[in-house]
Design a protein around this nucleic acid. Structure first.
Lengths: 355, 355
DNA sequence: CTGTTAGCGCGTTCAC
DNA sequence: GTGAACGCGCTAACAG
């Protein structure tokens, strides 16, 4: 089926040259008519060119344009895991915003490996992208950070623009995410609901995002003279399965008097809820659970999950805008981040505690 | 912070020419050392070139390579909605497989709009991608289909390779998905569990995938002399909110003696479960629910959702392989699709019915 | 094996 | 306003 049909001979795509010849004009005129930097071309010629282009099914070769112009229309996006709702939502935001700017986005997956991330940045540079957006997997004690910084510095020096989503120690534009304050707010509200004794499922200690969320949570608890005991912390993978395993471990250790488990992101929280259930307990009743990010599906689990809303799509959009904003500075980043502020959403997984 | 540092003057990326000069060799030698199709270059020169490249931080300009070679290393991927787990999983598969082939994937979102899809295909052609993968939103009575076909035919005639994920009427390579047989199997198993009276939440009537799934489900029910009454069908959007709204409508109409609601995909099913709950009923007990796709999160909802497993990541991989396989024909597509066969997964949302 | 040269498709100066 | 000619960064003949 796929190979059927009259074997029309394979040809090469129509070139601007073809269009010019077909229209009976020069290459320059054709070029001007089709993109016209300053449109100073006879209307009649213009139409002839457009007609010829349509007839030949001409599409400008973006690579050639990039070479000739010295700039591409590409934005490179690096994420830890495309299938993770957190990253796919951000990606959707980036792609949406890019589409509006007539930019094309290319995507790659770091798999949370900084070595791989570095390689990818290097490889992506080959595209001479206008901007490069790095999301996720920023570590605190990343030995490869200097190399990454050097690579990105070189990239920026040659006209590119690197943007990090969420805090990083590296000297590049950054769209700060309110991980710390969001977690702090969450802690405050949970305390108001009557919760006093907490445990947490955290990602790798070095993961910047995990670190900030834990720090914020602890900070929010401090005024009340409570906190997170070390033996109430479970380090695990920053994924659904990590959440499941972490909760299982916690249950094995014994929940003790723990009232609420804070999973550092929603997919972990969902895994944790399943682990609770598999242990014969009921999330929200036997142990409360809170997540972070407020990915769409948390509305559809039972009990509905308490979380901290991060406007993920908008974060993707703002990251691109921040990169494109020529005079972006600290103020601009602040403005962008104001647009992506968090909000605690209390749901059934953390019911008010009876006194 | 972002703008700090000594204003090192902005330069242009190192070119192959620079590397050659730095290494004291000719352009050709530099080129051969760095990519050398057939590595026939003096080891000493080679090393000098590599050293120079490293020193200068040289990265080959992919656009320039593409123009010179006449072929790019790009694969274009079109999906309906990036944030939807179905598509993000497929995308993850494509990106993963592409990475192995040293291909770069660019992504765009059709937003389930065939007009937009057509425009995107046209725009994407500008990249001269080696392959173009179209996933989702194939309609049965799509007026733009001829235009799309023409565009893709032109694309293939100029050396490109178009691949559809899931059936289409268009004459291009297609990775068939077992929507029909999967739904049929589901119906069979549900009947075995004791279910007799069904309703369904379906997407737009014209959506090919929706059509196939309904057809398969009906087919599976036929041998038992039962089926889906017209008034038990709710047409709604193919999204979570569509599922919610559809179920709400069904509940308003009155469930009657309906025992099970078949949502045509998992995100719809999850929305439907929430609607059931919001109506004060309990999914799985008051009304059974089944979905399709088996996206990861269905394991974490309550009750766990019965679904039909589609190996989404593998589907993405296979789509790319199918595109890359030079001698792909019907047999090859069949082989690939064998690798992406479905499997019914019965869970708690469809408990065995007491006789 | 190496260097020279002619393109690839397109943008853009520069004369006409 | 229009066209000829050069250059973008790189590959691929082609000679040496």
């Amino acid at each position: 089926m796929a190979e059927g049909g009259p074997q029309t001979r394979r040809s090469t795509p129509a070139t601007l040259h073809d269009v010019a010849r077909e229209a009976g004009v020069s290459l320059a005129t054709a070029s001007r008519s089709l993109n016209g930097s300053t449109r100073k071309v006879n209307e009649e010629y213009r139409e002839r060119v457009l007609a010829a282009a349509a007839k030949l099914g001409y599409t400008p070769n973006l690579s050639a344009q990039a070479v000739a112009r010295g700039t591409s229309t590409t934005v490179a996006l690096l994420v830890a895991d495309i299938a993770d709702p957190y990253f796919s939502s951000i990606a959707a935001g980036v792609v949406g915003a890019a589409s509006g700017e007539r930019l094309i986005v290319t995507m790659a997956e770091t798999e949370r490996d900084s070595e791989r991330e570095l390689e990818l940045v290097r490889a992506m540079r080959g595209q001479r992208p206008r901007v490069m957006i790095l999301s996720g997997s920023r570590s605190i004690d990343d030995g490869l950070a200097p190399a990454l910084e050097a690579e990105l510095a070189a990239y920026e020096q040659t006209g590119g623009r690197a943007v990090f989503i969420s805090a990083s120690d590296l000297p590049f534009r950054t769209l700060p995410l309110a991980n710390r304050s969001g977690a702090k707010d969450l802690a405050t509200e949970l305390h108001a609901l009557g919760y006093r004794r907490f445990a947490a499922l955290t990602g790798p200690e070095s993961l910047r995002t995990a670190h900030d969320r834990i720090a914020g949570f602890t900070e929010g608890l401090a005024p009340f003279g409570t906190g997170l005991a070390d033996d109430r912390l479970v380090r695990t993978a920053f994924t659904r399965d990590g959440g499941y395993e972490g909760m299982r471990e916690l249950l094995e250790r014994g929940l003790g008097d723990t009232q609420l488990v804070f999973a550092l992101n929603d997919v972990m929280a969902m895994g944790a809820m399943s682990a609770v259930r598999d242990a014969g307990l009921e999330p929200g009743r036997d142990v409360a659970i809170a997540g972070f990010d407020d990915i769409p599906t948390v509305r559809d689990v039972t009990p509905r999950l308490t979380s901290v809303r991060m406007p993920l799509e908008r974060i993707g959009e703002q990251a691109l805008r921040l990169a494109l904003d020529d005079e972006a500075d600290a103020a601009s980043a602040r403005a962008a981040s104001a647009d992506v502020s968090t909000e605690v959403v209390i749901r059934e997984s953390t019911p008010r505690l009876e006194a």
